[in-house]
Design a protein around this nucleic acid. Structure first.
Lengths: 151, 151
DNA sequence: ATTGATATTGAGATTTAATCTCAATAATAA
DNA sequence: TTATTATTGAGATTAAATCTCAATATCAAT
């Protein structure tokens, strides 16, 4: 069951069509290892001068579909203070859940997962009779590199 | 040391002026117990038909100042998925740090704090040689009320 | 392969929160 | 009172994301 199969199946199941644009965007997303924003993806796909044109709206629409079928995950890497929105898409297929350390200096993010924290979150929610759907934990600060270079 | 003192002192220390608009916005912010967005505050302050006009930019600018001096805290209550930005300002003066449970149905938020989680976060950061500035933990789901009414 | 029903597309308009610009005005210290 | 300098509000601008809609592509059924 490849990522493409998952996408195609999802589309069929929803009565949607597997178009050239959607395939192109899927492939591009899959082979990029860096986290990219929709705007960056749009720019790059445009510069490629493919035989087919890909519009901004199609990029956004397709990323939404990829998220719906579990291949991608939208993550906001803004610093939570300045309303600078930094939306990036991560690979989700065969990538277990994780949270992020986000460097306020270079913007890089570092993944981590901690089952103990997750368990405590469950306890907190239970105490409030709150039914958890998902969570986001972001730790902002300065990465190792930026601590040393920042004289 | 009242909130007003803190604000006035901060302004003086920064070489800024304590204006009627800033005083009005401070007072309004302090007496509101509900979390309000800058736009809501702007609308309400406008409807008040005060002897002085208050512009949108002044509301935003003043909220930034209140955050800088530790009286307010900007929190993004968007669901982290749909890029609906919901920026609200909380009281921070004499309000200890806390995180949030956010209801995806009614939008209400519930505060909690958990020292154990915080401690584990410190451990995670230490493991990455990451210097923590602050963090945000948001647990999204459905509150007690919305679970029962949602048939 | 052809057809027909329907989903998709891209260009450009629109939305929305937030910020910026700038000339007029207000606050402060001397 | 005055001079200096910060502040103000109106409206323009920004930027990410979404929407509109006529033209087009997809795909199942023939």
């Amino acid at each position: 069951m490849t990522e493409k199969d998952i996408f195609v199946d999802y589309l069929k199941q929803q009565g949607l069509k597997f178009t050239k644009q959607r395939e192109e965007i899927l492939n591009f997303f899959l082979k990029e290892e860096k986290h990219l924003s929709p705007e960056e993806m749009f720019d790059i796909l445009r510069k490629k001068r493919l035989p087919l044109k890909i519009g901004r709206a199609t990029v956004y629409r397709t990323l939404k579909l990829l998220s719906e079928c579990g291949l991608a995950e939208k993550v906001d890497f803004g610093d939570g203070l300045n309303r600078k929105v930094i939306t990036l898409f991560e690979h989700k297929f065969a990538h277990p859940h994780h949270d992020h350390l986000i460097c306020l200096s270079c913007g890089k993010s570092f993944e981590f997962s901690n089952p103990e924290i997750e368990k405590l979150q469950e306890n907190v929610a239970r105490g409030h009779q709150f039914k958890v759907a998902y969570h986001r934990l972001k730790i902002y600060g300065y990465c190792k590199k930026c601590q040393s270079t920042k004289k």
